[in-house]
Amino acid sequence: MDETGKELVLALYDYQEKSPREVTMKKGDILTLLNSTNKDSWKVEVKITVNGKTYERQGFVPAAYVKKL
């Protein structure tokens, strides 16, 4: 869990989004878990840094590609 009590997951593999509802992640990324009720895909939040500014983006990733921490 992070400092706000949200559950975290670790990306086990790289994943490139295939639709606007998904998010891209790299192996080793730590993501905030938002919903894990679907056995196939979990909703997560990723933090992306562009030019020194951090943005948050929500979307789905394959459940088999992440592990709860």
Results as ranks from 00 to 15, higher is better:
Met25Tyr: 02
Val50Gln: 10
Tyr55Cys: 11
Asn51Ser: 08
Val66Gly: 00
Leu34Glu: 00
Pro20Gln: 09
Asn35Met: 07
Lys27Gln: 08
Ser41Gln: 14
Lys26Met: 08
Thr4Val: 14
Met25Gly: 02
Leu34Ile: 15
Lys67Ala: 11
Lys6Asp: 08
Lys39Cys: 12
Thr54Arg: 06
Lys18Ser: 10
Lys26Leu: 07
Ile48Leu: 09
Gln58Gly: 03
Val46Ile: 15
Lys67Glu: 12
Tyr15Met: 01
Glu7Trp: 11
Gln16Arg: 11
Asn38Lys: 07
Glu56Ile: 15
Lys47Met: 10
Asn51Met: 09
Arg21His: 15
Thr37Glu: 14
Leu10Ser: 04
Glu56His: 15
Lys67Val: 15
Ala64Ser: 13
Leu8Thr: 07
Asn38Met: 09
Val61Arg: 02
Pro62Leu: 05
Lys26Arg: 11
Leu33Asp: 01
Ser36Asp: 15
Thr54Phe: 08
Arg21Asn: 15
Leu10Asn: 02
Val61Pro: 01
Val46Ser: 05
Leu10Trp: 06
Thr4Trp: 12
Leu33Ser: 04
Gly5Val: 13
Gly52Glu: 05
Met1Glu: 13
Leu12Arg: 02
Thr37Met: 10
Asp29Thr: 06
Lys39Pro: 15
Lys67His: 09
Val66Leu: 15
Pro20Met: 08
Ala64Phe: 08
Thr37Tyr: 08
Lys47His: 10
Asp2Glu: 13
Val46Cys: 10
Ile48Glu: 06
Lys43Ala: 06
Lys67Leu: 11
Asp14Lys: 03
Glu7Met: 11
Glu3Asn: 14
Glu22Pro: 05
Ser19Gln: 06
Leu31Pro: 01
Gly59Val: 05
Ser36Ile: 05
Tyr13Lys: 12
Arg57Ile: 10
Lys6Asn: 10
Glu22Gln: 06
Asn35Pro: 03
Gln16Met: 13
Thr24Gln: 04
Pro62Thr: 05
Tyr15Arg: 00
Glu3Thr: 13
Thr4Arg: 12
Lys6Phe: 10
Gly28Leu: 03
Val23Cys: 07
Tyr13Met: 12
Trp42Cys: 06
Gly52Asn: 07
Gln16Val: 14
Thr54Ser: 10
Leu69Lys: 02
Arg57Pro: 01
Leu69Pro: 02
Pro62Asp: 04
Phe60Cys: 15
Ala64Asp: 09
Lys27Gly: 04
Val46Lys: 12
Ser36Trp: 09
Asn51Tyr: 07
Ile48Pro: 00
Lys53Met: 13
Pro20Lys: 09
Lys27Thr: 06
Tyr15Ile: 01
Glu17Cys: 13
Leu10Gln: 11
Ile30Arg: 03
Lys26Thr: 07
Tyr55His: 09
Tyr65Asp: 03
Val50Pro: 00
Phe60Ile: 04
Asp2Ser: 14
Ser41Gly: 05
Val61Leu: 02
Val23Asn: 01
Lys53Cys: 13
Val44Ile: 06
Asn35Thr: 06
Ser19Met: 06
Gly52His: 04
Val66Ile: 09
Val44Gln: 00
Asp40Met: 10
Trp42Phe: 05
Asn38Glu: 09
Glu3Tyr: 13
Glu56Met: 15
Val50Cys: 12
Asp2Tyr: 13
Glu3Gly: 14
Asp40Thr: 10
Ser19Leu: 07
Ala63Met: 02
Lys27Asp: 02
Ala11Leu: 05
Leu10Glu: 10
